[in-house]
Design a protein around this nucleic acid. Structure first.
Length: 273
DNA sequence: AGTGCGACCCGAACGC
DNA sequence: TGCGTTCGGGTCGCAC
């Protein structure tokens, strides 16, 4: 999916048009997007609720309704578009929220990986999907001590550990490469072998990379745009992901697979030890 | 308990 | 132009 900066960008864009709009009806064209509750309950419950606020937790979008939270995870390619009622439904538009202003909020997802949940407000505090999430990158509890504790039994590559949403939320495949490049850490180094200095560097660079990406509206690679017509500008800032030459030493960037994910790094600047 | 890998989907990019 | 293959900004479930 879009990573944290993209979700943040989408959230802010949606807030401009969606706050205080009421969902008067819903059309569901591909049912698997709705993971909980049943389709019938989802349809029945969401009707006539107003969108009071939109927030983000990790890569989750949270629409605060009257009685529920609508949780939406965009996974790889989920997007939201506004359309007029009666506009033709695109083949990749799977859910349509009909609003009280003659507009529809359409959920578009080419690969159909995204998921939605409608959770009662009184249950949101204990909802496991959210409770299993780790710290936001800017949480004051994100310290070397915290990282050491979480990584102490992890023998997997640091690149893989950075993608673990139960430790730090919001980092995806691209920003993980960028964070490791700035921290001068080899993506294959085992998470439990990192020094205090390296852990601090990861913490600092995580904030730095994500903050800058948010400021620039995220990254656009291939098909992803945060909203129709909104293209992130962070792709101009990428140092290593999808690059061929290292901006520090001009060495060739190496592309490998780590846990099945395309991973870019500079063998010279990011030595294993 | 921690790790590795296939599955879920589809279209774009690539190789021939 | 056409056809087959590979790949991907994410996460879950299963086997070991």
């Amino acid at each position: 999916m879009p990573e944290l900066p993209e979700v943040e960008t989408v959230k802010e864009a949606l807030k401009k048009d969606l706050l205080n709009k009421k969902i008067i009806d819903i059309n569901i064209y591909y049912e698997k997007i709705i993971d909980y509750p049943s389709i019938d309950e989802f349809k029945k419950e969401i009707k006539n609720q107003t969108i009071n606020n939109i927030t983000r937790r990790g890569k989750w979008l949270m629409f605060e309704l009257d009685n529920h939270y609508l949780l939406s995870h965009l996974r790889m390619e989920g997007k939201y578009f506004f359309r007029n009622v009666n506009d033709e439904v695109n083949k990749h538009e799977h859910i349509s929220f009909i609003l009280d202003n003659n507009q529809e909020l359409r959920y578009h997802d080419t690969r159909k990986f995204g998921r939605m949940y409608l959770i009662k407000k009184e249950q949101i505090e204990t909802y496991e999907l959210l409770n299993e999430l780790g710290l936001e990158p800017w949480d004051n509890n994100l310290t070397i001590t915290y990282m050491k504790e979480k990584y102490k039994k992890k023998t997997l590559p640091i690149k893989t550990a950075l993608l673990d949403q139960s430790i730090i939320v919001g980092i995806g495949n691209i920003y993980a490469d960028e964070i490791l490049f700035l921290s001068k850490i080899n993506p294959l180094k085992k998470a439990n072998k990192l020094t205090n200095k390296e852990l601090q560097s990861i913490i600092d660079n995580t904030k730095k990379v994500l903050e800058k990406a948010i400021a620039l509206g995220g990254t656009t690679i291939r098909s992803y745009t945060s909203r129709e017509g909104v293209h992130g500008r962070f792709q101009n800032e990428l140092k290593v992901h999808s690059k061929e030459k290292c901006p520090n030493c001009n060495n060739d960037i190496k592309k490998i697979k780590v846990n099945g994910r395309g991973t870019y790094y500079c063998p010279k600047c990011q030595k294993k030890r």
